[in-house]
C-alpha cells in the first residue's frame, strides 16, 4: 500500500472571523477519485486552497503526496473555477495549455518535450483541433476542457478540479472524467463541487464539507444524506441518466 495522496490531521482555519473549517481529518488514498461536496460557504474552497498551499492552516497538519503542499506543488495539477478569468484576455487554447508546463525557478522558454506534452494533453481532452482558437470564442464546456488540459500538462500525480460541473452538463463531464480515468490510471483525482450526484458512479468516496467533514461511500449517497447536509432539497443527477439536450454538445462518441 502506497502512502495516501492527501492527509489532513486536525486542520482548522479561519479568515479572522468564525472558523471556516474545524478539526478536519481525512485521508485520500493514492489513485482514488473523490468528490468534495457541500453548500456554498461551507469551506470547500478553503479546503482546496489549504491543499494547494495557497493558505496555511491555523492548526493541524496537511500532507500532499507525502510532502507539505508547497513542496508537492510540482506534482499537483490544478483546475480553478472558470469565473476567475477575464474571458477577453487575448490568448489561444494552446498558449493556455502551455502554462501548465511552467515551473518555478525555471527561467528558460519551453522546449521540444514540453511542446509534445502540450499536444498530447490537447489530444486527450479532444481539443487539439481547437488549439489555435481564442479562449474567448469557446463554449463553457470547451473552456473547461482547456483548463483540464492545462492541469494535465504538468504531468501531475494528483489532480484538483474546482467546480468542474459549473459550466458543462453532467453527462459530458462524466464521460470526460471516465476517459481521464482510463488514460491516467495512477492519477489521484479530487473534485470539488456544489453539485453532488453528478459523478456518483465515477467517484469512490464523497466528502461532505460543511465546516466539518464527513465521509460517505459514493454508493451510500442518498437523497436523504445530501438533503440533510444542505438543509433542503437537492437535485442530484446520476451519471449515465438521460439528460435532455446533453447529446447535442457530445464530446466523445458513445
Amino acid at each position: 500500500m502506497s502512502e495516501p495522496a492527501v492527509v489532513f490531521r486536525g486542520v482548522s482555519f479561519s479568515y479572522g472571523g468564525p472558523q471556516v473549517l474545524e478539526d478536519v481529518s481525512l485521508e485520500i488514498a493514492a489513485r482514488e477519485t473523490v468528490c468534495l461536496v457541500g453548500p456554498n460557504g461551507g469551506g470547500k474552497s478553503t479546503w482546496l486552497k489549504l491543499a494547494l498551499g495557497l493558505l496555511t492552516p491555523a492548526s493541524g497538519r496537511i500532507r500532499v503526496l507525502g510532502q507539505s503542499p508547497l513542496r508537492a506543488r510540482p506534482r499537483i495539477g490544478y483546475m480553478p473555477q472558470q469565473v476567475a478569468f477575464d474571458a477577453r484576455f487575448p490568448i489561444t487554447v494552446r498558449e493556455i495549455v502551455r502554462m501548465g508546463r511552467l515551473r518555478g525557478g525555471r527561467w528558460s522558454w519551453l522546449g521540444k518535450v514540453d511542446e509534445q506534452i502540450v499536444e498530447r494533453v490537447l489530444e486527450e481532452v479532444a481539443m487539439r483541433d481547437e488549439a489555435h482558437r481564442l479562449y474567448a470564442d469557446l463554449s463553457g464546456g470547451q473552456r473547461q476542457r482547456v483548463l483540464i488540459a492545462r492541469a494535465l500538462a504538468a504531468e501531475p500525480e494528483i489532480l484538483f478540479l474546482d467546480e468542474p460541473t459549473a459550466m458543462v452538463d453532467a453527462h459530458n463531464e462524466g464521460r470526460l472524467m471516465a476517459r481521464l480515468r482510463d488514460l491516467h490510471r495512477t492519477l489521484t483525482i479530487v473534485l470539488v463541487s456544489h453539485d453532488v450526484g453528478f459523478v456518483s458512479n465515477l467517484v469512490d468516496r464523497v466528502f461532505c464539507v460543511n465546516r466539518r467533514v464527513s465521509v460517505h461511500a459514493a454508493t451510500d449517497l442518498s437523497q436523504g444524506t445530501v438533503g440533510e447536509l444542505y438543509g433542503g432539497h437537492v437535485h442530484a443527477v446520476r451519471h449515465g441518466s438521460h439528460l435532455p439536450g446533453s447529446s447535442s454538445d457530445g464530446i466523445f462518441p458513445e
Partner: peptide, 20 residues
C-alpha cells in the same frame, strides 16, 4: 519573463500553484 508575466496576468492563482 514573458511566459511568467503572461501567466501571472492571466491566472495568478494557477501560476502560484505552478511554483511561480
Amino acid at each position: 519573463f514573458y511566459q511568467q508575466l503572461q501567466a501571472v496576468c492571466f491566472d495568478e492563482e494557477f501560476a502560484r500553484v505552478r511554483g511561480i
